[in-house]
């Protein structure tokens, strides 16, 4: 069952800014990564989901409720972490958390306590005195404090050090296990590669692909880089029927794709020649992502 739906959402700000006919869904208990370069339209989409922007056409809904028409009801279900943290500057972290708890009618502060300890945060500091990392941690606590069913996180790990990033990844995994659904935007592939079930890629306001990181990591087609000792072996190898992606004659290197089913053909072909080295080129989300970043399609699609 999908709990969060974006259907043909369009918001045109002119100059190719905005989002155009964007559609995706987040299933119950799923973590969806929302990946794209700066200015791709991630935040605009998220603002629609929070009922802050009115769609030009299309709609966004949460649990079947239209986000623009029922912001009050959807806010009960959502935890939101804005991409840019702008706290009121006349409060301490504790006061802000207290204020938001009051606004939400929340009395149970066990989650706040737990998160404060997990992220090793001193909330008694004035918000305007906080470092970027501390603000980010405070924002994360504010988004998770009421145990929302759905989490909408706009670049959640920005400003966190690697240690805290891994604390955050653990938190996301834990919430997922508790059946929470999560939409997480990012411009960094490492961030979403480990945590997300699916990753939607957005560019210039358009969804260009939805990929499943697990499939990429366990793809049946692999890529190898092979260097031969002699130019003869290199030349003869070229004439074999492998799917060759790249050739560099100057150092006798071949980069080729091979399906697991045909791996023995490759091995027997190599056994006839003198190989200097062979290494697998790992397919990561990064490669996919960079492919989209640079305008083209990824090589093997």
């Amino acid at each position: 069952m999908s709990v969060l739906k974006v259907e043909h959402l369009t918001k045109d700000y002119g100059n190719n800014k905005g989002v155009f006919n964007v559609s995706f869904e987040v299933e119950q208990g799923e973590v969806l990564g929302f990946l794209g370069p700066n200015g791709a339209g991630k935040t605009v989409t998220i603002r629609h989901l929070l009922g802050l922007l009115r769609p030009q056409s299309g709609k966004t809904s949460i649990n079947g409720l239209d986000c623009w028409k029922n912001p009050k009801d959807i806010q009960r279900k959502i935890g939101y972490l804005p991409g840019e943290i702008n706290f009121p500057n006349d409060m301490t972290g504790t006061q802000l958390i207290r204020f938001l708890a009051d606004m939400r009618g929340l009395t149970d502060m066990t989650k706040v306590k737990k998160l404060t300890e997990q992220f090793d945060l001193d909330t008694s500091v004035d918000l305007k005195r906080m470092s970027k990392g501390m603000k980010q941690k405070t924002g994360i606590i504010c988004a998770f404090m009421h145990n929302p069913e759905i989490l909408v996180l706009d670049e959640p790990t920005s400003g966190l050090d690697p240690l805290m990033q891994s604390v955050f990844v653990d938190l996301v995994r834990e919430e997922k296990q508790n059946g929470r659904s999560i939409l997480m935007s990012s411009h960094m592939f490492e961030e979403v590669e480990d945590t997300c079930d699916r990753v939607g890629i957005i560019k210039h306001g358009r969804m260009v692909a939805t990929i499943i990181p697990k499939d990429i990591r366990h793809a049946e087609r692999k890529t190898f880089k092979i260097e031969f000792l002699s130019a003869n072996d290199f030349d003869s190898m070229r004439k074999e029927t492998f799917i060759i992606k790249e050739l560099s004659p100057e150092n006798n290197q071949i980069i080729l794709d091979i399906d697991d089913a045909h791996i023995n053909e490759l091995l027997s072909a190599l056994s006839k020649r003198k190989v200097k080295f062979i290494s697998e080129i790992k397919h990561g989300l990064e490669e996919y992502f960079m492919g989209y970043y640079h305008g083209g399609e990824p090589n093997d699609q």
Partner: peptide
């Protein structure tokens, strides 16, 4: 002032309507 600075987001991320 709060919209400009962005902290209005915190008011509106709680279950209240804009009119409230």
């Amino acid at each position: 002032g709060q919209v400009d600075k962005g902290n209005m987001a915190y008011n509106l991320s709680t279950p209240v309507t804009r009119t409230q």
